[in-house]
Amino acid sequence: MARPRPAGYVAEPGSSKANKTGSWRTEKPVFLHDTCTDCRICVLVCPDGIIFGADSIYDADFDFCKGCGICAAECPVDDIEMAPEVR
């Protein structure tokens, strides 16, 4: 028996990834990989959850990074800097 169609619409889980929000950015975070202590606070506080990496080498996914600068503001050892986005 065919399943009844729900009222409204059903979307694929996580399908918002089709929308690349990186184009919104006016500033980009630069990960200096210098004084990083591997605390992962940047990973925790990124509103979009797009900071990846391991062993003190982290970087943002620039397809989606909106350039809010929270990671740079919260980094306890100032290992992230914001730089103007050049396209």
Binding site: K17, N19, R25, R40, P47, D48, K66, I70
Partner: peptide, 30 residues
């Protein structure tokens, strides 16, 4: 150091239209 687990993509996937610096999207993600 103790080895940290690999970072997984959050259950609130990127690509959503929250404003830059949105506290609510951060809260929902956490």
């Amino acid at each position: 150091r103790k080895e940290k687990p690999p970072i997984e993509e959050p259950l609130l996937a990127p690509g959503h239209r929250a404003c830059s610096g949105c506290g609510e999207s951060l809260g929902a993600k956490l």
